[in-house]
Design a protein around this nucleic acid. Structure first.
Lengths: 120, 120
DNA sequence: CCGGATCCTTGTCGATACTG
DNA sequence: CAGTATCGACAAGGATCCGG
């Protein structure tokens, strides 16, 4: 229960720590990534991503990211069925973070993880 | 047991997902942050950071980051007492990621988290 | 004292089954 | 197809203990 933005507990006033209070888990940024590379994405399209997120986690993250104002539904008034999500400006602004993260992986993770692929 | 780099499970070949497989938690990047802003840091100095990491989590992260080659002890052969940690080149390379993350927080998190402070 | 290790409780993750 | 409900496994967090 409670996947809203209201009851976030900030560990400190540090911007990095605060960003991690919101996005410091293994899934939130992958949802953002999918929206950056595809523009929009429906519930089942998220599930088809190669990391195979569990349905409860996906629902929980979509709810949280929506309440944070990072993503929104393309048709807010419409039915749930086939209703896609997309990034808001605030969510889109995370693009440089993901780009730097991908750049770092490609520069320093190849030896640890053979098969790592090039993107962006 | 097992805070080593050997048994990491990669969810996919995506660089972003792979980076999050290593660093996608609430604490690892804060350890990196402390080393970026202070150069070196001892065990108890890490504990004095405002987020107050628990000792078992700190020890576990230091072990993992060391085995990943992101950090190292300043005096590898010396005693544990007052032996500090510092970043390797691979860890230092994460600086742009943290900078972008801080930039994003300062641009988009002020309304959610009053008291957020400016750094970097 | 300092750098951890251990114990124990609580919370979150994640797989799967299920519902509107 | 878009989510919820349930339950077991595991990680986080706090307290305390131990070795040098």
């Amino acid at each position: 229960m409670s996947d809203g933005a209201e009851d976030i507990e900030w560990r400190s006033v540090c911007p990095i720590s605060s960003a991690l209070d919101l996005l410091g888990d293994k899934w939130s940024l992958l949802v953002i990534r999918d929206l950056i590379s595809h523009g929009t994405r429906t519930y089942s399209e998220f599930r088809e991503s190669p990391e195979h997120i569990a349905t409860n986690i996906l629902a929980s993250r979509l709810k949280l990211l929506t309440s944070l104002g990072l993503i929104e539904r393309t048709n807010p008034e419409g039915a749930a069925r086939n209703n896609a999500y997309r990034l808001t400006a605030k969510g889109e602004a995370l693009r440089p973070v993901l780009e730097e993260l991908a750049r770092w992986s490609q520069a320093h993770l190849k030896e640890l993880h053979r098969g790592l692929v090039d993107i962006l």
